[in-house]
Nucleic acid binder design. Structure first.
Lengths: 132, 132
DNA sequence: CTAGCTGCAAAACATTTGCATTTCG
DNA sequence: CGAAATGCAAATGTTTTGCAGCTAG
């Protein structure tokens, strides 16, 4: 189901601004900041306001249609919520590499259980330099 | 070696304010925010400024005497840099539980290596609810 | 028609910084 | 004494919000 359809199902009004933002997000395979989403959205609709971008991303995050990240910059980045994965951030270029690891998933569940917790969410980020 | 001694060795002036902040940090086994460090410091020295707390924590972070964390709140928390460990954050109480796991360390090194990276830093946080 | 959205500008926050003054070494 | 540190208040940068007008359903 498309992002747009999911929003409609949730009872949201499908405004032109939201359509533009959703299209931008669908077309982004990176991890854009609010500012970047705003810039991309302005290409389709120059009158859109950054406040609307903030409001929409916040909404989508709450609906779990988008995932908010903080990669130790002083702002948030967002990505369309696909399959579960983690990130390796290249400290020299800022490039973000995605990866998955099954073992990791097992271990973190086990750790939480051992501590008497039910795991709701987690995050793992690696920060590194490219080997040459 | 004490935090104070390490600061002196690094060529920092040991001012009254710094002594107070370092004492607060040594006496904190939790993960206080800047505001909390400031409040605790004011008990010893009511004239201390929050700007000094910010400056000092920033300095200590750069010197790796303290570790800055972001637990998805809208501010940073700090902890005295002891042994390497990770955190489980109780989503209901905000309580932060520390843990270590050897397997995890091996896996993350391996993942970075496989991606062609040299691991500089990383973070792992679990967010959960207490089982009852 | 009207509840929900938007744009705008102002507010809110955490954090940083310029500058005059104070202090450690 | 002089470089470094402090306090204060103003500035910064991101994010949120009040409000009046607009629009999807």
């Amino acid at each position: 189901m498309t992002l747009e359809q999911q929003c409609i199902n949730a009872g949201l009004k499908m405004t032109e601004q939201r359509r533009v933002i959703l299209r931008v997000l669908n077309g982004s395979d990176d991890h854009p900041s609010v500012e970047v989403v705003y810039q991309r959205a302005k290409e389709s609709d120059p009158t859109i306001s950054i406040a609307t971008v903030y409001r929409t991303l916040h909404l989508l995050d709450e609906m779990n249609l988008v995932k908010r990240h903080d990669f130790r910059e002083n702002y948030s980045r967002f990505e369309v919520n696909l399959e579960h994965h983690h990130h390796l951030i290249d400290l020299e270029t800022g490039e973000v590499i995605e990866f998955q690891n099954k073992e990791l998933e097992e271990i973190k569940d086990r750790i939480a259980a051992e501590l008497g917790y039910e795991l709701v969410d987690h995050r793992l980020e690696l920060y590194g330099k490219r080997k040459r």
